[in-house]
Amino acid sequence: MQIAPDPAVTETALPAQPGFRLARGVARLLHSLGHAALCEFVPARGLRVDVIAITPKGEIWIVECKSCRADFTGDRKWQSYLEWSDRFFWAVDCDFPDGLLPEESGLIRADAYGAEILRDAPLTRMAAARRSRLTRDIARVASMRLQALHDPGAAGFGAGEI
C-alpha cells in the first residue's frame, strides 16, 4: 500500500526549528535519489543523528544538519557518528560558513524544501555485522513510526520508543 501525502498538511506543517527544516529538505533530496531516509535516529546509546539513510546499494549515509556556527561548534559527538555510516555529510543552509566544516566529509546545501550535494562524502565501509544490525534497527524504527501514524492509540507506542 502506498501512502499519499496530504499536500495541505505537507506544506503547512513546516518545522519551526532550523535544524528540522534542513533535515526535511535533506530527506526530500535523499528520497529523490531512491534512498530510504529516517530522521532523528539513535544508532547507539548516547548518539542521535539528524538523518540516516539506506541507499539502493545498501550503503548507510548519515547527515548532520547544522543551522549556525554555534550549532556546529557545540557538537562534540559528530566524530562518533563516523563508525555508524559508510558516508558522512553535513547539511547547512546558504548562510553557513562552509570553511568550518571538515573537508574529509560530504557537504549538502539545504533548506526546508530541498537540498543538493555540493561535495560527495568519501566511502568508508562499515563492518558487515554492524551494517546488518543497523539496517535491521532502521527498519524496525521506521516500521514502528509508520504503525504509530496509522494507529496512534495502540498500546506500546510510547513517544520514547520511536
Rank of each mutant, 00 (worst) to 15 (best):
R69I: 08
L118A: 10
F96G: 04
V141Y: 04
W90K: 01
P5V: 05
A154G: 12
R69L: 05
G158A: 13
V49Y: 07
I54K: 13
E104W: 10
E64W: 04
K66R: 15
E161M: 13
D86R: 05
R130T: 11
A16V: 14
E40F: 06
V9F: 09
G46S: 11
A154V: 14
R125W: 06
I52V: 15
M126E: 01
A44R: 14
C68A: 09
A110Q: 03
A129C: 00
R145D: 10
D50N: 15
G58M: 12
D137E: 14
G25A: 02
G46Q: 12
C94Q: 10
S143F: 06
I52W: 08
A23V: 05
R136W: 13
S67A: 15
A139N: 07
Q79V: 13
P102C: 04
H150T: 04
Q79N: 09
Q147A: 14
K77P: 00
Q17G: 01
R131M: 02
D50R: 06
G114T: 05
A148Q: 08
L14F: 00
G19L: 04
Y113W: 14
W90Q: 05
W61A: 06
D137I: 00
F96K: 02
A110C: 09
E40G: 14
R125T: 12
L82C: 12
S80I: 00
A129S: 07
A127H: 05
R45H: 15
I108G: 05
G114F: 03
